[in-house]
C-alpha cells in the first residue's frame, strides 16, 4: 500500500515535470483537442436542443379539424362524437369561432383584426392523439382516416413540419458524427506526436530507468498520464469555450427560439459536461498508448 502511494506520487511528479518541461507542445496539444471538441460539442449541443424540441413538440402534437362554415352546433357535436370513435384518437375538444378569435387576439395582438366586420376564423375540433400515436406516421394514419368526413373543411397538423424537422435532424446528426470522427482523428494524431516527442526528449532518462530495473509499465505510465491530462484539459477548455460562445450567441438567437418554438435553448447538463471532458481524456489516452506502441527498446 505504501509502495503504491510512493509510486503514485512519483508518477504525479514525473507527469507534471513532463508537462512543464515542454510547455509549447503541451499547449498546442491541449488547444488542438479543445478546438476539435468545441466543434464536436457544438454539434452535440445543437442536436440535443433539436431533440428536446422534438420531444416538446411531440407532447402536444395534435390534429385540428377545421369545420365548414355554417355547420350547425348539433352537427358539430355529432362530428366530434364520430371523431372520438376513430382509432388512435384520445380526446376531442370543440373550439368555437368566438374562442378561436379570442385565442388569436391574445396570441397576436388585439387590434390586428379590428378592421374586419365579421369573424374570419373557422370553428374547429382539436383532436388529441393517444400517446403512442403522436408520431408523424401515427398522425398520418389518423389524418387519412378522418379526411373527407362530412362537415370537415380542412385538416391541420404538424405532420409535414415534423417530417421535415426529422430530416434536418438526421442531416445535422450525420454531419456531426462525420465531423467528430475527422476531428477526433486529427486530435489523436497531435496527441500521439506530442507524446512521441516527449518520449524522444526523455529517451536518456528512459534508458537509465530501464537500466536500473524500471519495468515498461513504470516508464510508460507518466506518458499515458500526460496524454490523459492533456486530453482532459482540452476537454475542460472546450467546455469553457462552448459556454462562452453559447452565452455570447444566445441573446441573438433566444428571441427567435422563443417565438418560433416556445422554449429557450439549453447548455449541457453537468453529466454531459463530464462526458465531453471524458472524451478528451479518452483521446489523450488512445493517443499516448499509440505513441508508446512500437517504442519497445529493451
Amino acid at each position: 500500500m505504501k509502495r503504491l502511494t510512493v509510486l503514485l506520487l512519483y508518477f504525479a511528479r514525473t507527469t507534471l515535470r513532463g508537462l512543464r518541461g515542454s510547455p509549447v507542445t503541451t499547449a498546442v496539444a491541449i488547444l488542438t483537442i479543445s478546438v476539435s471538441l468545441v466543434l464536436v460539442g457544438a454539434f452535440d449541443l445543437l442536436l440535443r436542443n433539436m431533440e428536446d424540441l422534438l420531444d416538446d413538440f411531440g407532447r402536444d402534437l395534435h390534429v385540428t379539424a377545421y369545420l365548414e362554415d355554417g355547420l350547425a352546433d348539433a352537427e358539430a357535436e355529432h362530428l366530434a362524437a364520430v371523431l372520438l370513435t376513430v382509432e388512435g384518437v384520445e380526446s376531442v375538444r370543440p373550439v368555437s369561432k368566438d374562442e378561436a378569435l379570442e385565442r388569436f387576439k391574445s396570441g397576436m395582438g388585439a387590434d390586428l383584426l379590428d378592421g374586419l366586420d365579421e369573424n374570419p376564423l373557422p370553428a374547429s375540433i382539436e383532436i388529441q392523439l393517444l400517446p403512442e400515436q403522436r408520431t408523424p406516421a401515427g398522425m398520418r394514419i389518423v389524418v387519412e382516416s378522418i379526411r373527407g368526413l362530412p362537415g370537415i373543411g380542412d385538416l391541420g397538423s404538424g405532420q409535414d413540419w415534423v417530417e421535415g424537422y426529422l430530416r434536418a435532424l438526421a442531416v445535422v446528426r450525420g454531419i456531426g458524427v462525420g465531423l467528430s470522427f475527422i476531428l477526433a482523428f486529427a486530435a489523436l494524431l497531435i496527441v500521439t506526436n506530442t507524446i512521441r516527442l516527449a518520449v524522444f526528449a526523455r529517451r536518456d532518462e528512459l534508458d537509465i530507468l530501464r537500466l536500473v530495473g524500471a519495468s515498461r509499465a513504470f516508464t510508460n505510465t507518466p506518458f499515458i498520464a500526460e496524454g490523459i491530462a492533456q486530453g482532459a484539459a482540452g476537454g475542460s477548455l472546450a467546455v469553457l469555450l462552448l459556454f462562452g460562445i453559447f452565452h455570447l450567441v444566445l441573446p441573438g438567437l433566444e428571441f427567435g427560439f422563443e417565438v418560433v418554438l416556445g422554449s429557450a435553448p439549453r447548455f449541457f447538463h453537468a453529466s454531459e459536461v463530464l462526458v465531453l471532458i471524458g472524451q478528451g481524456a479518452a483521446l489523450g489516452l488512445i493517443g499516448s498508448v499509440a505513441a508508446l506502441i512500437g517504442n519497445a527498446r529493451p
Partner: peptide, 24 residues
Amino acid sequence: FKLLPRLTVEENVALALDVLGTPR
C-alpha cells in the same frame, strides 16, 4: 556516466530507488 543533467546528484542516484517504489 549516463547521468541526467537536469537532476541533482541526489535525484540521479535516487532513480535506482524510485524504480523500486522506495519511500522518499
